[in-house]
Design a protein around this nucleic acid. Structure first.
Lengths: 177, 177
DNA sequence: TTATTTAGTTTGTGCCACGTACTAATTTAG
DNA sequence: CTAAATTAGTACGTGGCACAAACTAAATAA
């Protein structure tokens, strides 16, 4: 319940700052919509984009995918179905567990997500250029610290169990809740 | 296309900071999910929540609502239908233009959004308590500045045309794009 | 007045998410 | 080593959400 989730403004005078809740809610919607617009260019929804993003450095089972995306497993079936139908991901039977199915990115899926990620990063750069360089760094740093603290707060996730070895098992924030 | 929209981590060493794009994307999903969880308590979706939030200090037409929420007007019809069916909003025929319909919050809708907003703010407070007080203020300030700059950048929105008079006409960020 | 634009709804399509019910494989008990 | 319980995944039905195209009614422009 955002104080003012969207295009609303209190009756404040010109340069008054937003409340933390308002600011975070609006920022969240802003980033969300930037992501959405980029994804749209490839006819991808946010959740499809997240799916591909997650698969960039993993080959999880359907079940793990559900946990990673914070979805019901029955939702993941359809999600992967649609991505597979478009040739973006593949289902590979697990050799270890004959019940399980591993989901992996296809070449097409990988190139799609790579290009998209690059453009999204460019969007973010451009957005951050609205701030003076020192503020940019400060903001990024603060956000990182907040996310790390939040992950640490609820579980020992974020960078735990991940040493320097490849794709980690730990699941950092964002999926949150 | 988030670099790593969700629960993913690069192969980074323990306390390495996230890239700006990663951080913003993850933060966005985090806030989004906090909002979602609170809304869920009242069986509200994010978009329903945004609808109620927008109506807190406006009584827009369907058309204005579409612009405010960045939706197609045909989408707004259904959105308002569902909210109206639950007694959260009302459709009031406009006296000025007999084609137009004004959408306003009912008492039930208002109390719902007020309570929800309070709880969301509490959630954000709690989240921000993970940072030292000085960092909290710094973060909020930077976010405000970024949002104001962004609004100014694309149009002259944010606090323009709004003096001290009540509910403004300008539509600030968040709806973005 | 006639033609055009504007406000809103209707209809049809597709994605997304959920809960429930089901099959098949695995694991645990006895 | 079977029998029971658990786990992985899918199928199905429901509903919200978003869009585009087609349509009605009112307002505005010609």
């Amino acid at each position: 319940m955002a104080a003012r989730p969207s295009g609303t403004s209190p009756p404040p005078a010109a340069h008054q700052a937003l409340s933390p809740a308002d600011g975070l809610a609006q920022l969240s919607f802003l980033i969300h919509s930037i992501l959405e617009r980029r994804a749209r260019e490839h006819d991808l929804s946010i959740i499809q984009t997240r799916l591909l993003g997650v698969l960039r450095d993993r080959t999880p089972t359907m079940n793990e995918l559900a946990r990673l995306l914070d979805l019901d497993k029955s939702s993941v079936t359809g999600l992967v179905d649609r991505a597979q139908r478009r040739g973006l991901v593949a289902r590979v039977p697990s050799t270890a567990d004959r019940r399980a199915v591993l989901v992996s990115l296809t070449g097409a899926g990988r190139s799609l997500v790579s290009g998209g990620a690059a453009r999204f990063e460019a969007d973010i750069s451009q957005l951050l250029e609205l701030l003076p360089p020192s503020d940019r760094d400060a903001l990024s740093g603060l956000i990182s610290r907040l996310l790390v603290a939040h992950a640490a707060d609820r579980g020992i996730d974020l960078f735990a169990t991940i040493g320097t070895d490849g794709p980690g098992t730990g699941s950092p924030a964002a999926t949150s809740h």
